[in-house]
Amino acid sequence: MTTVGIATGAGRGMGEACARRLADLVDVLLLVDRDETTVSAVAKDLNAAGHRATAEAFALDVTDRAGLARLADRVRETGTLRAVAHAAGISPTMADWRRIFEVDLIGTALLAEALRPLATQGTAHVYFSSMSHLLARVEPDAATAEILDEPLHPAFLDRIRAAVGPDVEQSALAYPWAKHGVARFARKEAVRLGKAGARVCALAPGIIDTPQGRQEAAEHTTMQQLVAATPLGRTGRSEEVANVVAFLLSDEASFVNGIEILVDGGVVGAVR
Results as ranks from 00 to 15, higher is better:
residue 23 A to R: 04
residue 65 R to M: 13
residue 266 G to T: 03
residue 145 A to L: 15
residue 27 D to V: 02
residue 243 N to F: 11
residue 171 S to A: 14
residue 137 R to S: 08
residue 54 T to Y: 13
residue 214 R to K: 10
residue 252 E to G: 09
residue 124 A to P: 01
residue 271 V to S: 02
residue 118 L to C: 11
residue 234 R to G: 02
residue 247 F to A: 02
residue 63 T to N: 09
residue 119 A to D: 10
residue 111 L to Y: 05
residue 164 V to D: 01
residue 21 R to L: 05
residue 57 A to I: 04
residue 225 Q to A: 06
residue 189 E to D: 12
residue 162 A to M: 05
residue 223 M to V: 15
residue 237 R to C: 00
residue 141 D to G: 12
residue 202 A to Q: 10
residue 113 E to C: 08
residue 222 T to M: 13
residue 243 N to I: 10
residue 268 V to H: 04
residue 197 G to Q: 09
residue 153 H to F: 05
residue 240 E to C: 03
residue 44 K to G: 05
residue 151 P to R: 06
residue 263 V to F: 13
residue 92 P to Q: 08
residue 114 A to D: 05
residue 190 A to T: 00
residue 232 L to S: 07
residue 7 A to F: 01
residue 211 P to G: 01
residue 251 D to T: 06
residue 267 V to C: 00
residue 135 L to P: 00
residue 15 G to R: 11
residue 238 S to C: 04
residue 170 Q to T: 12
residue 36 E to G: 10
residue 189 E to F: 14
residue 124 A to M: 00
residue 255 F to S: 07
residue 262 L to Y: 09
residue 245 V to K: 02
residue 240 E to F: 04
residue 269 G to K: 07
residue 153 H to P: 07
residue 172 A to E: 11
residue 226 L to W: 12
residue 150 E to P: 11
residue 239 E to P: 03
residue 255 F to Y: 14
residue 245 V to Q: 02
residue 18 C to Y: 10
residue 211 P to E: 03
residue 122 G to C: 06
residue 256 V to H: 06
residue 181 G to D: 02
residue 105 L to N: 09
residue 263 V to M: 10
residue 169 E to M: 09
residue 256 V to K: 02
residue 23 A to E: 13
residue 160 I to T: 09
residue 200 V to L: 01
residue 122 G to Y: 06
residue 11 G to Y: 03
residue 108 T to I: 05
residue 243 N to M: 11
residue 187 R to I: 13
residue 228 A to D: 15
residue 158 D to W: 02
residue 201 C to S: 13
residue 145 A to T: 15
residue 20 R to V: 11
residue 99 R to I: 07
residue 2 T to F: 11
residue 173 L to C: 04
residue 215 Q to E: 15
residue 225 Q to L: 07
residue 90 I to F: 03
residue 206 G to R: 00
residue 67 G to T: 07
residue 21 R to G: 02
residue 167 D to G: 13
residue 37 T to D: 12
residue 129 S to F: 04
residue 188 K to V: 13
residue 45 D to A: 08
residue 76 R to L: 07
residue 13 G to T: 05
residue 125 H to P: 05
residue 229 A to F: 01
residue 243 N to S: 14
residue 255 F to R: 02
residue 149 D to Y: 10
residue 228 A to S: 13
residue 232 L to F: 09
residue 71 L to F: 10
residue 149 D to M: 05
residue 267 V to W: 03
residue 111 L to S: 03
residue 28 V to K: 10
residue 109 A to N: 02
residue 170 Q to A: 11
residue 143 A to M: 04
